[in-house]
C-alpha cells in the first residue's frame, strides 16, 4: 500500500466510511499481532492487545495527522497498550508475591513465568525460539519494545526515534543494550546458537 493510498483510506474512514478501515487492518494485522505476541508472550493476550490497538486507532484516526506513517503510529499504539497490560499484570503478580514475603520469600516485581504455550506448541518450537521467548520476558517492557520495533516491525532508527520521542543516538545504544541483555540471557541458559551459515543481516535501516 502506498502512502497515497493509505491517506485516501484514512480520509474515507474519518469521513464516516467505517468499512474502509478493513483495508488498513488487513495491511497491518500481521506485524501488529507479531509485535503484541512478542510483547506479551502468549497468543490469547496478543490477540486482545492487537485488536485493542486497531480499535483505538480507529477511534482516534481523526487525530492522525499523517506526519508519520500509519504503521509507525499503530505500532506505537500497540506497544503502549502492551506495556500498560504488562504493568497491570506485574502489579497483580506483585500482590501474590506479597504473601510469599511473609514466609521469608523474596518480594518484589518478580516475573513469574507464564506457561502460555500448550505442550504441543512448545514441542514444535525450537529451543532457540523458546529461549528467545524467555529472554524477551526477562527484558524490561521498554527494552522489549524498542528491540521489537526494530526486529519485528522493521522500523529504522529514525522511525523509532520519532515514534518513541528519543534521540536517534539513544535508539542505537538502547537497541544494542537490549540485544546484549538478550544474548547474555541466551548464553547463560547455555542456549548458544552455533556459527551457522552466514545469512545476510536483515534489511538495512535506510541510513
Amino acid at each position: 500500500m502506498t502512502r497515497e493510498q493509505e491517506r485516501e483510506i484514512i480520509e474515507k474512514v474519518v469521513a464516516g466510511d467505517t468499512e474502509a478501515f478493513e483495508a488498513l487492518v488487513l495491511e497491518h494485522q500481521n506485524k501488529v499481532y507479531s509485535l503484541a505476541l512478542r510483547m506479551v508472550g502468549n497468543e490469547e493476550d496478543a490477540r486482545d492487545m492487537a485488536q485493542e490497538a486497531f480499535i483505538r486507532a480507529f477511534n482516534s484516526l481523526a487525530g492522525f495527522r499523517g506526519d508519520s506513517k500509519f504503521s509507525v503510529w499503530i505500532y506505537r499504539l500497540t506497544s503502549n497498550i502492551c506495556i500498560d497490560f504488562l504493568r497491570s499484570r506485574a502489579k497483580k503478580r506483585t500482590v501474590s508475591m506479597t504473601w510469599a514475603d511473609d514466609e521469608g520469600g523474596e518480594a518484589g516485581e518478580l516475573e513469574i513465568p507464564d506457561e502460555t504455550w500448550s505442550p504441543a506448541e512448545r514441542l514444535e518450537r525450537s529451543e532457540t525460539r523458546e529461549s528467545v521467548r524467555r529472554g524477551l520476558d526477562s527484558l524490561s517492557p521498554q527494552y522489549r519494545e524498542i528491540l521489537l520495533l526494530r526486529e519485528i516491525n522493521g522500523l529504522s532508527y529514525d522511525e523509532i526515534s520519532e515514534a518513541l520521542g528519543i534521540e536517534p543516538g539513544t535508539v542505537k545504544s538502547r537497541i544494542f543494550r537490549a540485544r546484549k541483555k538478550l544474548c547474555d540471557f541466551l548464553l547463560s541458559e547455555g542456549n548458544i546458537p552455533g556459527p551457522g551459515a552466514s545469512n545476510a543481516p536483515k534489511g538495512g535501516t535506510g541510513v
Partner: peptide, 16 residues
C-alpha cells in the same frame, strides 16, 4: 552469532 540468531528468530507471525 547470538545477536544474529535472535534477529532471525524475531520474525513475523501471521495474525490468527
Amino acid at each position: 552469532e547470538a545477536m544474529r540468531a535472535v534477529s532471525l528468530e524475531l520474525d513475523v507471525t501471521d495474525a490468527p
